[in-house]
Amino acid sequence: MIELSGKIENNMIFVLSNERSPEDADLLHLEWAVVSQLDGQKTVGQIAENLALSRTEIEEIFRKLSSQNLLVLVNRSGRDSLVSPEFFKILNHEMTLLLGPVAGIILEDVLEMMRMNRDNFEVQNLPVLIELLTNQIDDPVKQVEFQKNIYNRVRVYLFK
């Protein structure tokens, strides 16, 4: 069991606490909907997606449920779920081969667009990063070449 402090992250996984039943709390319809999704497998992000809730809405609901001692955090992002800085060096190298010296700028632009950075980049976002970078390459043949070259590196993170 992990103590909850700070921000509710998309990749956190919660289960219902054994100490208090949701029936004892005064829950709204959407809060019940979230409770019904807690299965120890779905992340906060997946529950938000299933219920079509915004980031703010899901965070508010999880905060309320947590403050009422209804939740137990069973897993959350650790260093294992972050991409190593070494990966970005390889990525930069692969992109430079295809795009030349602007590759580094493009990579930074895409990371900024994703509101992320090299030091705090979560593994689950790698496919989106690769797709956005691929879109920066005009030649379809080079697009495939880039994806093939980088996939084996990405795979190590995704299926470890």
């Binding site: 997946q46 496919p127 797709e131 495939v144 994806q147 093939k148 990405v154």
Partner: peptide, 16 residues
């Protein structure tokens, strides 16, 4: 697929 978030990865694997 259960989660739409995985579609980017599915697309990438098929491409590769």
């Amino acid at each position: 697929v259960k989660s739409i978030a995985d579609i980017t990865l599915i697309r990438l694997i098929i491409n590769v």
